[in-house]
């Protein structure tokens, strides 16, 4: 961010960080999107950044969380939760208590449910606005943040949001800095027991490794290099979609349901 951008002194930022999982080897690590969130927070001038994690605690999760400490933090607040607990109430309570101006988190977790719903549920519960796919925080003035949201194909949308707010980052956010080994192992994990609420839904679920599904091939009939490039660079938007405007929530939900049935996601 431009250093000259005016920031209200002492912007309180909390980054929600999770334990990640490497896509190829399954080894724990700092989650990529959460790390991008930390990077974004670090680049804010004049911000007081806290790291917060809620989840199960063991040796391997500690190692992964230390990855965030290595980005230049001396401590990370850790709300210990039993396996399979719903971390939402614990996080909501902690955020309520510390009342930061801005909460940054990755779009979705790399392990567990990974539904990407947590930020939305949190926003709903706290009654804060949520902005997804954040690319940059341009300025914060008088409790209003000017944000840059990333849209497909490199487009950006400027938004003004009243704080406190929750923002999520995905791969459009700047890449995280390297995690340094020395600070990572010297930093402390400040553990406390958060309120525990068991996730009954989750308990009923059956989890099994995903089978790789054949990829849908995109057949490009391009005659020139320019067309091939355009086809390769285009974000596939499925072609056959439809845009519904001015419909009631029920109509919208109906349309989504129909699509899911067509695609055999729901039977």
């Amino acid at each position: 961010m431009q250093p000259e951008s005016a920031m209200t002194p002492g912007l309180d930022v909390t980054v929600l960080v999770s334990v990640g999982r490497h896509p190829l080897t399954g080894r724990v690590r700092r989650a990529d999107q959460d790390a991008r969130g930390v990077e974004l927070a670090r680049s804010l001038a004049n911000a007081e950044v806290r790291l917060l994690h809620a989840g199960e605690r063991n040796e391997s999760s500690d190692a992964a969380l230390r990855g965030y400490l290595g980005m230049g933090f001396s401590e990370l607040a850790l709300l210990e939760q039993p396996e399979g607990a719903d971390v939402l109430p614990a996080l909501a309570e902690a955020l309520d208590a510390t009342s930061p101006h801005l909460v940054i988190t990755g779009e979705r977790a790399e392990r567990g449910e990974g539904s990407g719903l947590l930020p939305y549920l949190l926003a709903e519960r706290l009654g804060w606005p949520l902005v997804s796919s954040l690319a940059a925080v341009e300025s914060v003035e008088n409790g209003v943040a000017t944000l840059l949201q990333a849209l497909p194909r490199g487009q950006r949308r400027r938004l003004s949001v009243r704080l406190p707010a929750i923002v999520t980052v995905d791969d459009a956010a700047p890449a995280p800095r390297q995690s340094a080994y020395g600070p990572a192992r010297r930093g402390t994990l400040e553990a406390s027991m958060g309120p525990v609420s068991n996730d009954e839904e989750w308990a009923k679920w059956q989890v099994q490794p995903a089978r790789p599904r054949p990829k849908r091939l995109k057949i490009v009939k391009a005659t020139s290099a320019r067309d091939r490039f355009k086809a390769a660079a285009a974000k596939s938007d499925g072609g056959g979609g439809q845009v519904l405007t001015d419909v009631t929530p029920t109509q919208g939900a109906e349309a989504i349901l129909t699509l899911l049935r067509e695609e055999n996601v729901l039977q």
Partner: peptide, 27 residues
């Protein structure tokens, strides 16, 4: 590298790959 996390170029990526996949290319 260990204290500043300032390995330049592709250094950080290579190191992350080595940690996660035991080879520098991330294969």
């Amino acid at each position: 590298t260990l204290e500043e996390g300032a390995t330049p170029g592709k250094g950080a990526e290579v190191i992350d790959n080595l940690i996660a996949t035991d080879n520098p290319g991330g294969f």
